[in-house]
Amino acid sequence: MTQALPPLLDDDQAAFISGGVSISAAACRSGGLPSMARATGCRIAADRRSITILLSATASAGLIDDVRRNGAIAVVFSLPADHRTLQFKGGDARVVPLEPGDEALAERYVDAFAGGLEPLGYPTQVIRCVLACRPDDLTAISFTPSAAFLQTPGPDAGNALRSGA
């Protein structure tokens, strides 16, 4: 079982994905169209064995529906400043209750992400608008990462970093 292995996520990756990076998730229905949504924050379990992303339930309705059906998820994290990009996949994604502090976490995330975009000349007001989420609309999806991929643009993009499966 994966429990016997060290966690897939190392310290550096954990710091990276919980920083001011762009977060997008995909799910799918077998044979059907994939679904997708932007996330507005990420929290990592103390043992680094699970990743929880925060999303707007309204804007992510299709993704949540697919996750509920089969638990498959892919989440990509990218830092606009240097294009460093990591993708984590899991097969046990589920909608979980919010934890205390999640609302504040989402707010801090938006500040960190927008703050990193400002010097790059991105329209940060627009980004804040896209990521804005009413507190009562915030929801959380949690999964155990079972595979990690480097996706920084280039010929190595897509290479598996390690598979925990």
Binding site: S24, A26, P34, A72, I73, V76, T85, Q87, Q151
Partner: peptide, 19 residues
């Protein structure tokens, strides 16, 4: 101006996301 993202799905039902 703001990069788009693409979600695809492998035949075994594994989703993928890319910029």
């Amino acid at each position: 101006a703001i990069p788009g993202t693409i979600a695809t799905c492998s035949p075994d039902g594994t989703p993928n996301m890319a910029y």
